[in-house]
Amino acid sequence: MTSPSAPQRVCFELRVKPEMLGEYLARHTPVRAEMLAEIAASGRRNYSLFLGEGGRLIGYYETDDDAAAQAYLAASEVATRWEAEMAPFFVDLDGRPDQAATTLTEIFHLHDQLTASVTDHESDAS
């Protein structure tokens, strides 16, 4: 789990309609420069999308304040246009893709557990 001083790590899942996979990939190769700039300006970084079988799409990013990043993008005309264009690509989506994706719960992070392990080990040695 995330510590209070660490960036928030956000992972989400969507499903791309199989018949639209080719076009979805084309829209992301590359993403429009204005949208890339808005993602960065929102405070999201280390952002990746991963595509699995059957159109399963997993996204991951880090941010210092996810609520602020979401609010920034919700108010952005560029992001609003992009999300409206992307919405038809997804199965059973109720709303904007950037707001309606299923968020996944983080249950393990190597760095956090290694840090806790070292801290615990140092406490045991005292």
Rank of each mutant, 00 (worst) to 15 (best):
H111M: 08
Y47F: 15
F50W: 13
L73V: 02
F90H: 10
Q113N: 11
E13K: 12
P18L: 03
G22V: 03
S126F: 15
T115L: 11
L57H: 07
L36S: 01
Y61Q: 04
D64N: 14
H121E: 06
A37N: 09
G52M: 06
E34P: 05
S76C: 08
P97N: 02
L57A: 07
L93E: 05
T2R: 13
A6F: 14
G22N: 13
G54L: 04
A84V: 08
R45A: 11
G52S: 03
D66A: 06
E62V: 04
R27S: 05
T2I: 08
M1W: 15
F108W: 15
D120R: 13
P7G: 01
A79N: 10
P7M: 05
L21F: 01
A116D: 13
L114H: 11
Q113S: 12
D64P: 11
A79T: 06
P30Y: 04
E85A: 12
T119D: 12
V118F: 10
R15D: 07
N46M: 11
L104R: 07
H121K: 09
A87H: 07
R56A: 09
E53H: 10
E53F: 15
D92C: 05
R96H: 10
S117A: 15
M35C: 11
E85Y: 03
Y60W: 13
A75L: 06
E13G: 05
Q70H: 12
R27A: 10
G59K: 00
T2M: 07
T115C: 07
L49I: 10
G22Q: 12
E62I: 07
A87Q: 07
V31G: 05
S117F: 15
M20I: 02
L104P: 03
T105I: 13
A26W: 00
E62A: 04
Q70L: 14
H109T: 07
L51D: 00
L21E: 04
D64Y: 15
I107H: 11
Q70T: 14
E77R: 10
T80R: 11
L114R: 08
D65Y: 15
A68K: 03
L21K: 06
T115Y: 12
L110N: 04
D66C: 08
L51I: 08
M1N: 08
A26I: 00
A6R: 09
S76M: 01
F50C: 07
A37F: 11
A100W: 04
F12V: 05
S42K: 00
G95A: 09
H28F: 09
V31S: 04
D92R: 03
D112T: 15
A40R: 11
H111Q: 10
A37P: 08
S3W: 14
F50P: 01
Q113D: 11
Y47E: 03
R96A: 15
T115I: 10
H109D: 13
R44Q: 14
E122Q: 13
T105A: 12
A100E: 02
P88I: 01
A67F: 07
D98P: 00
R96Y: 06
A125K: 10
H121Y: 14
A79F: 03
Y24P: 00
D65S: 09
D66T: 08
A84I: 05
A125D: 07
A68M: 02
Q99P: 00
A68S: 04
L14W: 05
H111F: 14
A40D: 09
F50E: 04
Q70W: 09
S5V: 12
R15E: 10
L57T: 09
A41H: 06
Y47P: 01
L73T: 01
D94V: 11
